[in-house]
Every structure is written in C-alpha cells, then in structure tokens.
Design a protein around this nucleic acid. Structure first.
Length: 505
RNA sequence: GUCCCGUUAGCUCAGCUGGUAGAGCAUUUCACUUUUAAUGAAGGGGUCGAUGGUUCGAAUCCAUCACGGGACACCA
C-alpha cells in the first residue's frame, strides 16, 4: 500500500500545511447541532417569506464536500451528511482575517469533511442554503473522489470499495436503508406474532436442511471438520420438539455453489417454525407479512421490476402439477408419465438423466416451463414427495406434500411446508437420499440421525418456512443483481504480484 | 465449470483497417462576492490489466494469465 499517486501526494502536502498553521486535519470533536435534513425542515419557511434570510437563527452542520464552486471572494459548496445535501455560502469577509484566502481556498477541497456554522437564507435562484461565518475542517480526505457528475460507474470498484460507492451514489445508500428496514420489520412482524428469535449453530457437523454443497472448515481443538450451515432448519425443528411453539432465525446461510445475479456464497434468510399450524396457515401469514412490509415501507402495491410490473395485491395459488399444464403448456397426458416427460424434455433439447424419478422429472418440467412465467406473487403448492425430503405427505395424496413455494418475477422467494414429523418416514426419506447420493447425486440430503431421534420424541404438527431476504430486497428495490443488495458481495481477491503466476501449482 | 464481452489519466469515456495517446470532470496557476455539472484563460498528469508472440513499428493483431460484467449449468 502506497500513497504515491500525484493527487494523493498533493493532498498529503495540504494536510501537512494545515498542521503547520495549527489546524489538525483529523479533528477530534464536532459541534454539529443538527442534521441537514432537519435544517431543511426547520428553515424551509424562509422560502415563502418576504425576507429570505434570518440572521437570528444559528446552526452548525457537518458533512463531506461534494461540490466546490469558487468565485473569487465568495464560494458555494455542497456538503452532504447521511440525511441529505446542503448548499453552503462562504464569503471572504464573513470569515476570520485571511482564513478564506490562506486556508479555505488553498487547503480545503472536495472530499473533505467540514463543519460549518451560520444562518439560513435563500439564494436568488431559490435554494435554501447556509450563510457561513465559521468553517472548520474535521477530516482531510487524501484520496480524491470520483468524478462529480457521472459518479462511480465501474462495477468492480463499486463492489470492492463499497464505501466509495456509498459516498458517490445516494440511491445505493437508499437501497441499503430499505434492506435494513426489511430486516427490522421482519423481526418485528414475527415478534409481534409471538415468535421467539433464536440463534442456532452456524458450524454444523452435518450439513442438513437443504440440498446444497457446503463449505468445509476445521475445528482444531476438537480435531473435527465442520460445515458452514446451508440451512438452520433441522436445529429449529429440534427446538419445536423441545417445546418452543414459534421460533424464527434471521441469519446467513453458506452454499458452496456457483455465483451469479441471484446467488452469493453467503446469503440471508429468515426461517420460522410454527407449531399447531399447517402450510395453509403460512399462506395466510405470508400475505399478511407482505402487507405489513408494504405498509411500513410506504411502498405502492404495484412495483416496477425492470420491464415488469409486479402487483403485490394479486397473490394466486396453484398446484404444481396443474401449473405444468395451465401455465407451462405441458400436455396433460404426460405430466404423470415418467417416459412421457423424458420424451417431452428430450424433444425440447433438455438434458435428462434416466435415473430421475417421476417427482424429479415433474420438478424439471416446472423449472423449465413454469417458473419463469410466474410474475405476480404465486404460491405453487403440493410438491412431489421425491423432491421434498423434509415435508409432510398430503393425507389424501401421499405422493405429494403439504408444501408451497412462493414465486415473484420468475424467482423463488420462499419455501414452506407442513413439517414431516413421522420419525420412521423421516428415516426412510433420509435413506432414500443416501441412496441418491450413492448413485451420484452429490447434493442429496445428508443423514442426520440425531434429528430423527429428536423427532422420535414427538414434534407437534408444525409448519415452517424460509424466505430469502436478499431476493426479497431485490424485488422491493428493483435491483437485478444480488450484489446490489449486499453491502460487500463476494469477490475474488486481486492478485497483486502477477509475475508469480505459473510458479504456483 | 463453459461461452461471449470488457479492462486506456484520480474518475467518466473516445481512440477506424497497426505508425509512439485524446476529451470532459478533477488537479496546478491566474481572474471572478448569489453559483447550480458555475464561468473564462494557461499548464501538468499515462508501464493503454499482466506476460509472451507476430511486425521495421502494437493501446490496436495473436496466445496465455488475472480481474470484472452478462448468459448458460448448479443452487436459493
């Protein structure tokens, strides 16, 4: 790490010059007494008044200089704090002797964080501003900011140096404010319903609760390998066995899979489990949850998503098998015919494995022909049992499960079901997954004997659900890459010494 | 993992079929006391992602690598 860039050197020199005249370029304290947003709120009355200034009001605001317009003996600055942007008017004769010429003009610049005291006034152009009579440098920025008009465009830099992205792009700050609110509202919604927030292990001896490849790490003291969790499900259900009747956990899951616009190796979900309820209760709860979010976020129910418009007042519900024909256009006579599906998929140039069972093939059909078409919120219900190793069988049709997934804008947002609580059935399903694993399916579910033991003590009838928070935030903020709703998305490290390559491995 | 595209000044971007690099903003110097991406004038600033190759000559053509973006595959 060096500061040998010419512009950085110039600014370091300015910091040194400030020190020489007794100004600390990294001041220890601030006397700010209002935020910029409050300043605007309190003083906007001047816009309507005859006298466009009020010298009896005094405020001290602080912020980063984003624009600097110097016009001889007076200047206009725009400073920004988290709450907003404010124009500052600085005139030579209102500041201490020589401060304007020797300090302000020469040693303070865009990017620096300053504090300004003055009174409110409205400029001839009609902008509420602050007339400065005191100006203090709080923090010297020695790296220059990106260009003022286009901002920071380079995606790689935006993700790697998110702080710069946040400085330059206010809409990015807005996205992450919404994300924070979504998490907070989610927590409040479930707490208000009587759910208990719990924390279960992130390091698992068995990576269970989903079909995915885990990250592997090692615990030195115990001398054992541990997996970063792919889902908290099996632990949360153990808590239901233990007698907690409504629990939720909001936290990270880790999956060692490919990365793309909707997948990051670590992602956030909420999982919740509710005893004495069924998946049908969860459909009602999910709608209520969305209403709650929209209400508290002050969002309209019809939201743009790229070219699409999503109507969050239009939740529909359809069984998976039925959606294959009505939405997917798959011929009705083949949806329950293994060979028929194989032929159909083949005729659409889609890869198939002959070892796939009927349920898996129906899942394939759904993924290919239905999923992408589900724009408005849609609950797809009654998944085949073969692709639902942890879900309760439907009482009338045991080849199906009491399960739904919620799709919005062609993407899976939530997965929920009445939980399988028959320990013998659960054991058999695990054994089925083991067989699938032996025959090459490396994402088949792991056997978790302790979980089966837990069920053997009796788990009340329970419904459980997971919601992908990142994808939900994408929907709500009209973002099309998961990286744009993650403050620090996963990135490959930069190789600094490229001369060394070829010598490794 | 695979395929396609990209990487040029601090930032945003030009740079055609190969002839030793340009603009705007920023920066430096000067002028300017109500500007709105302020304005006017002058100057400085580059290992053209890296390494090889082709060529008299490479930002430009070729190969390999690195990083990023998009699509596909897998997953959520």
């Amino acid at each position: 790490m060096t500061f040998d860039n010419q512009y950085v050197q110039q600014r370091i020199e300015k910091a040194n010059q400030l020190r020489e005249v007794g100004i600390d370029p990294y001041a220890n304290n601030s006397n700010r007494n209002t935020t910029i947003e409050k300043y605007h709120n309190v003083n906007s009355d001047l816009m309507q008044k005859e006298d466009k200034r009020d010298e009896h009001r005094h405020y001290t605001v602080a912020g980063r200089i984003k624009l600097f317009r110097l016009m001889g003996k007076a200047s206009f600055l725009k400073i920004e704090d988290e709450s907003g942007m404010l124009q500052i008017y600085v005139a030579r004769d209102n500041l201490p002797e020589n401060f304007y010429n020797d300090i302000f003009k020469k040693l303070i610049e865009v990017g620096d964080i300053i504090e300004v005291t003055g009174y409110p006034f409205v400029t001839q152009q009609g902008e509420l501003s602050l007339h400065a009579h005191e100006l203090t440098l709080l923090t010297k920025a020695i790296s220059p900011l990106p260009e003022k008009f286009h901002g920071l465009q380079d995606k790689e830099m935006r993700y790697r140096q998110r702080y710069l992205d946040l400085i330059m792009n206010s809409e990015v700050r807005k996205t992450f404010h919404i994300r924070s609110k979504v998490v907070s509202l989610t927590r409040r919604f479930f707490e208000d319903k009587g759910f208990l927030e719990v924390e279960t292990p992130m390091m698992h001896p068995i990576a269970g609760g989903a079909n995915a490849k885990p990250f592997l790490t090692h615990h030195n003291a115990l001398g054992v390998d541990r997996f970063l969790r792919i889902a908290p499900e099996l632990y949360l259900k153990r808590l239901i066995v233990g007698g907690f009747e409504a629990v939720f956990e909001i936290n990270r899951n880790f999956r060692n899979e490919g990365m793309d616009a909707t997948h990051n190796p670590e992602f956030t979900s909420i999982e919740f489990y509710w005893a004495f309820k069924t998946y049908k209760d969860l459909i009602v709860l999910t709608k209520e949850y969305f209403d709650y979010l929209f209400d508290h976020l002050n969002l309209p129910k019809r939201l743009p998503y790229g070219e699409l418009e999503i109507d969050f007042d239009q939740f529909t519900e359809i069984e998976l098998i039925k959606s294959l024909t009505t939405i997917g256009g798959v011929p009705e006579n083949i949806v329950n015919d293994k060979q028929g599906i194989l032929d159909y998929l083949k005729s659409h140039n889609l890869e198939t494995k002959p070892a796939m069972n009927l349920g898996q093939l129906q899942g394939e059909l759904f993924d290919e022909f239905v999923e992408g078409k589900l724009i408005n919120p849609t609950f797809i219900t009654h998944y085949p049992v073969e692709i639902s190793p942890l879900a309760r069988r439907n009482d009338e049709r045991p080849e199906l499960t009491d399960r739904f997934e919620l799709f919005i804008a062609g993407r899976e947002i939530a997965n929920a079901f009445s939980e399988l609580n028959d320990p013998v059935d659960q054991l058999e399903r695990f054994e089925g997954q083991m067989a699938a694993k032996d025959s090459g399916d490396d994402e088949a579910h792991e056997m978790d004997e302790d979980f089966v033991t837990a069920l053997s003590y009796g788990m009340a009838p329970t419904a459980g659900q997971g919601i992908g928070i990142d994808r939900l935030v994408m929907m709500l903020t009209n973002q099309h890459s998961i990286r744009d709703v993650l403050l620090f998305p996963a990135m490959k490290p930069i190789q600094h010494n490229q001369l060394n390559n070829g010598e490794e491995e």
